[in-house]
Amino acid sequence: MSSAHGQGPKAPHAFMQHHYNTPEQQAGAAKLGMWVFLATEVLMFSGLFLAYFIVRMFYPDMVLGSHELLSKTMGGINTVVLLTSSFTMAMAVRAAQVGNTPAILRNLYLTIGCALIFMVVKYFEYTGKFAHGIFPGKYFDYARAAEYAHEHGHELVGLPHIFFGIYFCMTGLHGVHVLVGIGVMVWLVFRAKRGHFGPQYFTPVENVGLYWHIVDLVWIFLFPLLYLVK
């Protein structure tokens, strides 16, 4: 792959690929690619949201009865944590734009930290449910779950295994996205440490940022639908 065919000016940074003419073209392509990828993410999650709305439509009492078993506090904490991480991620992008590598690293660490807190809270939520027989689908243990509901002054109605099936699917897929996000942010940390990012080249930071914000966006809708709505 020789660069003799490149018609643009001399490559301005080390990450310019030979088949692009300008860094702007490369950055623009990467960013558009990311937005299109985000579109596919939104559509993928939309399937789960639609399933939720349909189930809610079929069994309104069951959904309202079952969601009382989820902890609003834990969900609320996670919402705040995730919003904060979105903020620190945006700050990391800004630091890259102005070429402040220590600030990029600091903000990436904060974001990863928030993501880890999110997953830890999630872990306690899941195990807390499993401990009372609340499993998805056919593994749902009605007797233990009903007992647990009684302790908290609620009543199980109808077919709660469907609600928890959807709950585990939605939060599970979202959790997988958080884990992937942690992975790519660790990759960014390594690259940032080598001083790869600056005003001329910060596409990876920006794109990971976009990805992280969409993970946040999904949670913004998940939280009220699963935990809060009456």
């Binding site: 998805p136 593994y139 077919l159 295994h161 099936g165």
Partner: peptide
């Protein structure tokens, strides 16, 4: 997931 866990979104036997 429906096939492994029977979560009851598509399967009429589970609602």
């Amino acid at each position: 997931i429906e096939r492994t866990l029977n979560i009851g979104i598509f399967d009429p036997a589970m609602g």
